[in-house]
Design a protein around this nucleic acid. Structure first.
Ligand SMILES: [Zn+2]
Ligand SMILES: [Zn+2]
Ligand SMILES: [Zn+2]
Ligand SMILES: [Zn+2]
Lengths: 164, 164
DNA sequence: ACCCCGCTGTTATGATGTAACATTGCCGAA
DNA sequence: TTCGGCAATGTTACATCATAACAGCGGGGT
């Protein structure tokens, strides 16, 4: 898959890859996951997922709304938020809390909070899956006698390309 | 100090401690820090800091506004946001991104992003300073060739008391 | 006296997110 | 087959969070 596995790096965000594959993979995977669970990935929800996957930059709910409205005149905020809530509950997208924006998940199907590297220059946001970091989070919570559930990890800075 | 050092734990949030000490310590420390830097901790800004320190639960900007307005009728949103921005720029408070709310910093003076344990039951939020977690964050960014700057770490779940 | 500059006041608006109720369409029970 | 339940979507209105833009004020230096 274009956005997963060993080849996964920040270069994706700079159009150095065939992003069409990212979108197609994400939609295909979403259909499989929802079908397997009996969750209803309706045309509306799929369209919203597609819009979120337009790039590797987090997209705001009202940007989704503007884009959705081009093909779906009746679109209103609740339409978008409901779709986003559904996609989050199925683990197909994440909310980036520090940006109030949404991003397609590159590990859909594997339940997880997300860990994100957000470039303040180009906006490209990479989801990483770092087992050591995950362990460190769990240990930190444990040391504080805290029963962690949802974990928000968002590191802002400069991606390799923008730093160069 | 009541909210720092070895005695620092989630019990603080449950009024099992003398919270007056937390407030007094925080204000005293803020005055020292600002005096040392030439930063102007004006009466308005100090009042806002005091309001944020009313509890160990993150407080919304409009809650601060309501409270501030009791003694300061002219208070408006920009007044509050300017004060909060100042306090954040001086490292005296943190913004909890996943709640859009603000919390007094327990390690003011030591530049750092923050690491937070947020109880979804009682709302009490503990700031931890976990060196191993900090290292894990740095390493994770490094492995991804990312130059991290600001780090948002917010773990939601149940504090020891609420889990019991 | 005058200017500069940082802080605060004031008005208005932008950006993000939700409550509450109406409507539609499907599917299974009676 | 008819009807009732239920999930998805439509629709209106509103709640919450945050900032732009300009005005007034006051201390400190020249
Ligand atoms: Zn891509
Ligand atoms: Zn993910
Ligand atoms: Zn306290
Ligand atoms: Zn802190």
């Amino acid at each position: 898959m274009a956005a997963r596995g060993a080849a996964h790096n920040t270069a994706q965000a700079h159009q150095t890859h065939n992003h069409r594959e990212c979108i197609d993979d994400a939609l295909k995977r979403a259909r499989e996951i929802c079908a397997g669970r009996g969750a209803q990935l309706t045309p509306l929800r799929e369209k919203v997922l597609q819009i979120v996957w337009r790039s590797h930059k987090p997209v705001g709910a009202y940007d989704v709304l503007d884009e959705l409205a081009r093909s779906h005149k009746a679109a209103r905020p609740p339409t978008v938020y409901r779709a986003l809530d559904f996609l989050m509950s199925e683990g197909l997208i994440h909310k980036i809390e520090s940006l109030n924006a949404y991003l397609g998940c590159v590990e859909a199907g594997a339940p997880h909070s997300g860990q994100f590297l957000i470039c303040r220059q180009c906006g490209a946001t990479e989801e990483i899956v770092d087992a050591k970091l995950e362990t460190a989070l769990d240990q930190a919570a444990k040391r504080a006698h805290f029963a962690g559930e949802r974990k928000v990890v968002e590191i802002s800075g400069l991606c390799a390309r923008c730093a160069a």
